[in-house]
Computed example of a mutant assay.
Amino acid sequence: MARTQGTRLRRVRLWRWRRNPLRRRSDLVEAWLVLAALVLALLLGVFSGLTAAAAVDGSLAERRERTTPVTAVLAEDAAGLSAPVTENGDGGVWARVRWTASDGTDRTGRAEVDPGSRAGTKVTVWTDPAGRLVSAPPEGAEARFQSVMAGTTVAVASGGLVLLGGRLVRARLHLRRLAEWEEEWRRVEPSWRRRMTG
C-alpha cells in the first residue's frame, strides 16, 4: 500500500479491548485468551519451577543422608593407570581401594582417585547403607546449580506448553474468523458487485 508524503501509518495498540464497530466478538475472545494464557503460563511456570527445584533439593538432601564418607586405602599405584577421565572432567582415574564397612568387614572396590597417588595413600570414598561404593553426593554450589537448573527447565517447559496451547487456540480462532468473513462476503458480494457495475 503506497503512502502519500507526510502521512504516517499509526498502529493502534490494544484495539481488541477498545469498543469499535469493526471489532467482532471473536476479537475480544482472542484478547482474553492471550491475557489468560500469559497469566497462566507465568503462574504455572513459577509454581512448577519452584516445586521441581524443591523436589531436586529434597532428593539431593536424602542422598546426602544415605551416603557416608569413609576413609579407604589405595590398594594399587594410580600413577600407571590409564583410565579415561571421568564424565565430570576433574581428571581422576579409577583405582582399586580397600576400606572397612560399618559392619566391620573388609571391602574392596574401584574409586576415583588423583592420577599420581601411590599405593597405601588414604582417600575418602562414599558408601551407601549396605557398604557399597557410591559417587559423592553433590553439595554446595553444585547442588544449588542442579536445583536451579531443574526448576528453570520445568518452569520454561510448563510455561511454554501453556503458551503453545494458547497459540493453537488462537490459530483455530483465526481460521474460524476467516471462514466467517468468507461467508459474509458471499452474502454481500452480489449486491456490492451490482452497485459497482451498475
Results as ranks from 00 to 15, higher is better:
residue 85 V to R: 14
residue 43 L to C: 09
residue 39 V to P: 02
residue 64 R to K: 08
residue 107 R to K: 15
residue 131 G to N: 07
residue 43 L to I: 07
residue 107 R to Y: 01
residue 194 R to G: 05
residue 195 R to H: 11
residue 89 G to S: 10
residue 172 R to Y: 00
residue 101 A to R: 11
residue 20 N to S: 15
residue 160 G to N: 08
residue 2 A to R: 12
residue 151 G to M: 00
residue 16 R to F: 02
residue 71 T to S: 09
residue 62 E to R: 14
residue 3 R to Q: 13
residue 68 T to W: 11
residue 173 L to Q: 13
residue 175 L to A: 09
residue 21 P to L: 13
residue 185 W to G: 14
residue 191 S to E: 02
residue 130 A to S: 08
residue 16 R to S: 12
residue 66 R to L: 04
residue 19 R to D: 13
residue 175 L to H: 03
residue 143 A to T: 06
residue 106 D to R: 10
residue 21 P to R: 12
residue 72 A to W: 01
residue 54 A to I: 02
residue 113 V to Q: 04
residue 124 T to M: 06
residue 146 Q to T: 04
residue 6 G to D: 07
residue 23 R to Y: 09
residue 144 R to A: 09
residue 96 R to D: 14
residue 88 N to M: 05
residue 59 S to A: 11
residue 65 E to A: 13
residue 151 G to E: 01
residue 91 G to C: 05
residue 147 S to N: 00
residue 133 L to G: 11
residue 62 E to S: 06
residue 7 T to M: 08
residue 192 W to R: 12
residue 17 W to P: 14
residue 10 R to Y: 13
residue 117 S to D: 06
residue 47 F to T: 15
residue 133 L to E: 03
residue 28 L to S: 05
residue 1 M to V: 15
residue 15 W to I: 15
residue 131 G to C: 13
residue 99 W to V: 12
residue 30 E to L: 06
residue 82 S to H: 12
residue 107 R to E: 09
residue 111 A to G: 02
residue 42 L to W: 14
residue 113 V to S: 09
residue 10 R to P: 10
residue 131 G to L: 14
residue 96 R to M: 13
residue 143 A to Q: 10
residue 98 R to Q: 10
residue 64 R to I: 01
residue 175 L to R: 11
residue 18 R to W: 15
residue 93 V to Q: 00
residue 37 A to P: 08
residue 36 A to Y: 07
residue 193 R to N: 12
residue 142 E to H: 06
residue 93 V to S: 02
residue 27 D to F: 04
residue 150 A to T: 08
residue 4 T to L: 09
residue 161 L to P: 00
residue 26 S to R: 11
residue 149 M to I: 04
residue 44 L to C: 15
residue 98 R to M: 03
residue 11 R to L: 10
residue 76 E to H: 09
residue 99 W to C: 07
residue 198 G to A: 04
residue 15 W to A: 14
residue 11 R to S: 08
residue 13 R to Y: 07
residue 132 R to G: 12
residue 138 P to N: 03
residue 142 E to F: 04
residue 144 R to C: 04
residue 66 R to S: 04
residue 139 E to N: 05
residue 118 R to S: 06
residue 171 A to H: 05
residue 50 L to A: 06
residue 130 A to T: 13
residue 11 R to Y: 13
residue 41 A to V: 03
residue 174 H to L: 14
residue 196 M to T: 08
residue 196 M to F: 12
residue 68 T to P: 07
residue 67 T to F: 05
residue 40 L to N: 00
residue 62 E to M: 11
residue 6 G to Q: 01
residue 189 E to L: 10
residue 182 E to F: 05
residue 17 W to V: 15
residue 189 E to W: 09
residue 152 T to H: 02
residue 96 R to W: 01
residue 32 W to P: 03
residue 119 A to S: 10
residue 128 D to W: 11
residue 81 L to Q: 05
residue 71 T to H: 10
residue 88 N to L: 10
residue 18 R to Y: 15
residue 132 R to V: 08
